[in-house]
Design a protein around this nucleic acid. Structure first.
Lengths: 210, 210
DNA sequence: GACTCAATTGTGGTCATCCGCAGTGTGGAA
DNA sequence: TTCCACACTGCGGATGACCACAATTGAGTC
């Protein structure tokens, strides 16, 4: 598990140096990448933090880099920097899920504020995702039969009915049911329902809701 | 309950006429408003549809109008139109929850597409909100004591424990419990937990997530 | 004062859940 | 072949949930 970093992706060394210095003085941990390609090659899905991405770069542009990242399941907030962006570009970026879009020249304070908010957002997302992942892990420990029984339990059916539908005895259902509770770390069907309810909402959409 | 309308808010009659004509040919129902003030005076929280809002207007600007609307709990998607918007303006609007931000001149098709997506989004939101509102209504039918018991039931506690905590007899808890199930239209604690789980997530944030 | 509603309680019974004990059968891994 | 995970089953008992019947009290209304 990596520590949260503000990843600076810019092919202009002067800007990278300036941003690194800026972040260091504000006690924001950061990393530098001199091109989109370099960053993409290193990027890992489990990274924490945010991305400060220059749009105009020599090879791959920031926008292209962003698209690749999103396709690969990136969840880090992306803050675009640009010298001469136009409105459609900014609108498009935000609608695709970018966190912010800043035009140069910008105030140091403005950028740091945005980065801090982005880091906070990622921390939040990370926390909520961790609990969901934990549930998923527990769920994976269930045998197929146990999952089957669990679903019927969550449907509010009596053990008797479940036994009937699965053509097994009530006693067997009870055993599966008990194992499900044990493995999921709950002590009643109600707790189970509450534990699973959030993740059972359909469509766990990531960002672009337009 | 009003029918879904694309509300055109613009003080330029020529543009209103053009948009009205455009929407009519695309079978999108619309309404015209010649100023932000006029629209705000008429606006009702239960309106369906979307808002096409010109930014540059004589008295109140589209951005100001938008702020007022959001404060009053507007949920309709807002599409901004502008002749000469700048990037910070667009970014700010989107981050405050605007649905889209189009610069004139725009393609008729582009605007209609955006409006149709906005209408679809509102329809979706409306549907999900309706079911939540229904749950809330049922919840409001519960007496204070019943809600108290319900919460303890949802905490997975036994009737005996609940009786203890409330200093009442088990029998009374059973009665409250039965009334809760009846009023909420469910037949088991599991169903109740599932019914309430979505709305029990903290923070029913409306739009601006930044 | 009659009436309604929320909250309360008891009795006695049925049905469901939970659990320990004890055991069978199958298929895959060591 | 032995071991193990998984699925399956029966018995019996303790405990919890649910329900019909029957009733009391206090607050607020008509």
């Amino acid at each position: 598990m990596s520590t949260p970093l503000a990843h600076i992706v810019d092919d202009d060394e002067a800007i990278r140096d300036a941003l690194t210095w800026l972040f260091r003085t504000r006690e924001v941990a950061s990393a530098e990448w001199s091109s989109a390609e370099e960053f993409l090659a290193a990027w890992q899905p489990d990274w924490r933090g945010c991305i400060v991405l220059d749009i105009r770069m020599r090879e791959m542009s920031g926008l292209e880099c962003f698209d690749v990242l999103q396709e690969q399941g990136n969840t880090l907030p992306v803050i675009f920097l640009t010298g001469h962006g136009d409105v459609p570009m900014a609108v498009g970026a935000l609608k695709k899920g970018a966190f912010d879009f800043l035009e140069k020249p910008f105030e140091d304070n403005a950028l740091v504020d945005v980065v801090i908010r982005a880091l906070a957002k990622d921390a939040k997302r990370q926390a909520s995702q961790a609990s969901q992942a934990s549930v998923a892990n527990h769920l994976a420990l269930l045998t197929p039969r146990e999952q089957e029984v669990m679903n019927l339990v969550l449907a509010g059916k009596f053990n008797k009915v479940i036994a009937d539908e699965l053509n097994i005895s009530m006693r067997t259902v009870e055993v599966h049911r008990a194992r499900v509770f044990e493995k999921m770390g709950v002590r009643s069907a109600v707790e189970l329902a509450q534990l699973l309810a959030p993740s059972r909402e359909k469509g766990s959409g990531s960002s672009g809701e337009h």
